[in-house]
Amino acid sequence: MPWRSALNSTLKWLFRSALPPTVTFIVINLLWEASIHVFKVPRILVPKPSEVYLALWHEPEALLRGTFSTGVTALLGFGLSAVIGVAAGVVLSSSRWIERAFYPFTVFLQTVPLVAIAPLLVVWFEIGKKPVVVAAFIVSVFPVIVNTMTGLRSVDPALIDLFRLYGASPLSRLFKLRLPAALPNIFTGLRIAAGLAVIGTIVGELFASYADENAGIGMLVQSYQKEGDLDFAFAAVGLASLLGLLMFGSINLASYITLRRWHASEQGRAV
């Protein structure tokens, strides 16, 4: 029975949270189409949305394959960020001294200009998927680290006392108290990281991928633009955003399913 009610409320949640943006999206497309007709915007500047969809409809293969390729790469980068970011957060918040010694350097990850180091990544990891995954990782790991640390640090002191009172080991304190308490913050970090991983992937692809049949969206946008296929370029950009949205949405769903019974941020959404 519980899975049934979980499914039910998940469907409700999808309905409530997916319907409004869909309506907005359709309205914006109609306005876009109309204003190109009314203001006679030249085709080489902005294509009509109908042309973009037609391009996607008639020649979807390269675009979909590119989206899939970019999606896999972004997911790998994001996965690295999630695992390494949470682990780094745990290590950094385990002692004040470790934090003082290493935290300033993690800030580099936040400030390093990806465009500047992407060529270096290619030198280090060779052209292909590897440097792109690393680029996605570099731009997306910092928010995971910071949010994990915030979460681990804001545990109710009375609960820490309770665990001490019953002689809990540091490990059970970590897994039974600090990590679960940090989950809402960790999800916040992951949400931000999901979008960043897609951006990092596409920027990485501009520098580091082949224009072969597995070319990612970054590669495709570049070649469509060179050839003046603006409708295809727009379709590629749209698919990239959709990819980010899909990843963001999956994290939201995971967060909702995990937290809905106990955390204020996910309550009152469905039920």
């Binding site: 109710d156 009375a158 609960l159 309770l162 039974k176 108290l177 679960p180 989950l183 019974r261 106990w262 955390h263």
Partner: peptide, 9 residues
């Protein structure tokens, strides 16, 4: 404690 301080999860 003065408040319940339960594990919400």
């Amino acid at each position: 404690f003065q408040d319940a301080h339960l594990l919400p999860w």
